[in-house]
Design a protein around this nucleic acid. Structure first.
Lengths: 318, 318
DNA sequence: GTCAATTACGTTCTCCGTAAGGATG
DNA sequence: CATCCTTACGGAGAACGTAATTGAC
């Protein structure tokens, strides 16, 4: 009673309806003519009626065959377009990738990733959300983004996550500051400096706090949210700050100097986070691959930044 | 590359998409859960992408799965309605039967067949064409009718035909006519009678001609086309006629008498004719079965007519 | 520890191809 | 009698079920 056709059978049926010749239709379907004959017979059994009037000389659709042929043609077109759509998505010719990232990554790394992605997969729509780690995780939780690049946040165990890179910290100060000539800095070097703090909610602050526990820094009274503000304050000699390497692009001004902080424990882990047990969509997976491929470059860039740090954080050509 | 799904697989996919539980979906598809799992895996291979995010605890569609599920639901509905339409036709719930028949059959036999057919297959549209045998055959040739009930005509070899019944002849005359009291008649009884002829094109005339070759009948001067005219002429004592049993319904008047003609060679074959090598549509085949089932009834009716013939051809109720 | 999906493996069954058969023009 | 569809039959591969395995909560 239940219908159990295969698409192959429907296609073979339509081919025979078109060329009205078993031998030729069989050849066109890459089947022996005998197999083709059996296939049509089975189809007719399933349909419960003859679909072709045929003898050894002529083959023509019956009225029922005409009816089914119309449906079959429509169905095949529909099936094929549906699968074409699916293939377009798996081949990243269509689709959408939404990413949440920390402001630092959203401002520098992700635009470069997106640019490469747009070049390679022009049909894929790209979306970016920038926010602190809790906001990033919330977007992942809601399924509004495919994945997030963020620091560890609350309830991280709800997600699948893995370490993408370990972001080191740099001391940034005015080039006229006493520390500006150093090639490397330790936490104790900050003793007596006026430190510009980040808001307590930021992951940077949360990483710095323990490391600064026993360093007698002077509190500048500034506790800002945006890196650009930090840069402005430091550039005007109102204090120094300690920022992750990934944010250094904000500090590439002639009057500023960035010095790597040599405290192995002081690193900000950047995680790749996605919903637990959810496979990435093909374009999202492709983007992740691109991000990972760009990571060595970034590491090299970090090395370059480190070696440049002795002089000044000069703006990179772009 | 080419798609080779079966409907079963699509249906299984939709079932799983609906109930998001392999074991239950497998049961609903009457498959072992293992077979079901493999089936989904094969589908995903064919689709080229994961369709479900799943672990041992949760099953949910991926974005690609959602896409395919939408298509699949639509496709299944389409396929099922197409096949339902086909089943309706094979089950004679829908369809059309067109028949060509000689005027005698079209006026009496076919209406009764059609009435029975309409009762039994109310969804089937019925069409009737009445015409002489060449016209009937032409309609069959053009495919405008499914079959014809007719006398042998020109180029009969072009068709598939078989004898449906042999129509005997009756002498019809006014009840005051000298022959009216006979129970049976031979050709020689017509000697000296005024005979009302049919048009030369009619099959009746063509059958009578040879049998009358050596009978010295008087020619009435009438040569008409319609049986009702013959009946009118005979009823008014303007002559006698010899007509096939199937036309006797035209002569059921109190003033008329019908007497069977006992000439074995004088029969008019009524053929079932269809296009060569063309299968009948299901409702047409059903109608043919009904016609054949009604034939014994007709034979019985003919017997009844014969036994009534001694008295008068009294009108049957209706 | 239990429930559920996957994997392994032997069996069954479908489907194909070769070859013989039969019908038609 | 040549062409072309159908039937017969044996083999290859797909699909199924049982049972063991893995994984999640």
């Amino acid at each position: 009673m239940a219908i159990n056709l295969s698409i192959r059978v429907l296609r073979a049926f339509v081919v025979l309806a078109d060329c009205r010749h078993f031998t030729r239709a069989a050849a066109r379907c890459h089947l022996s003519q005998s197999a083709f004959s059996q296939l049509i017979r089975r189809l007719e059994e399933e349909a419960g009626t003859a679909l072709f009037n045929r003898n050894t000389r002529n083959v023509a659709l019956t009225a029922e065959g005409e009816l089914l042929a119309d449906s079959a043609r429509r169905l095949l077109a529909d099936i094929e377009s549906s699968f074409a759509e699916l293939k377009d998505r798996t081949a990243c010719r269509k689709g959408r990738v939404a990413v949440a990232a920390l402001p630092s990554l959203a401002a520098d790394t992700m635009p470069r990733v997106f640019a490469a992605c747009r070049r390679r997969f022009p049909g894929v729509a790209l979306e970016l959300f920038d926010g602190l780690s809790d906001r990033c995780l919330e977007l992942v939780r809601q399924g509004r983004v495919d994945f997030a690049l963020t620091a560890p946040g609350s309830r991280l165990a709800e997600f699948d996550s893995r370490l993408l890179l370990s972001d080191s910290f740099h001391l940034v100060c005015h080039r006229d500051h006493p520390l500006a000539s150093k090639r490397r800095a330790g936490m104790q070097d900050l003793a007596g400096c006026e430190l510009i703090h980040f808001a307590r909610t930021s992951s940077v602050r949360q990483h710095l706090e323990p490391a600064l526990a026993d360093v007698p820094v002077l509190h500048s009274g500034f506790e800002v949210e945006h890196l650009a503000t930090v840069a402005g304050l430091v550039a005007n000699g109102l204090g120094v700050s300690v920022v992750p390497a990934l944010t250094l692009f904000q500090f590439r001004r002639p009057e500023l100097v960035a010095i790597p902080v040599d405290v192995p424990a002081l690193v900000r882990p950047i995680l790749f986070v996605q919903r637990k047990g959810i496979a990435l969509s093909p374009p999202a997976a492709a983007m992740v691959k691109m991000i990972e491929a760009m990571l060595p470059v970034r590491r090299a860039a970090r090395q370059r930044a480190r070696s440049e740090a002795g002089r000044a954080a000069t703006p990179r050509g772009r």
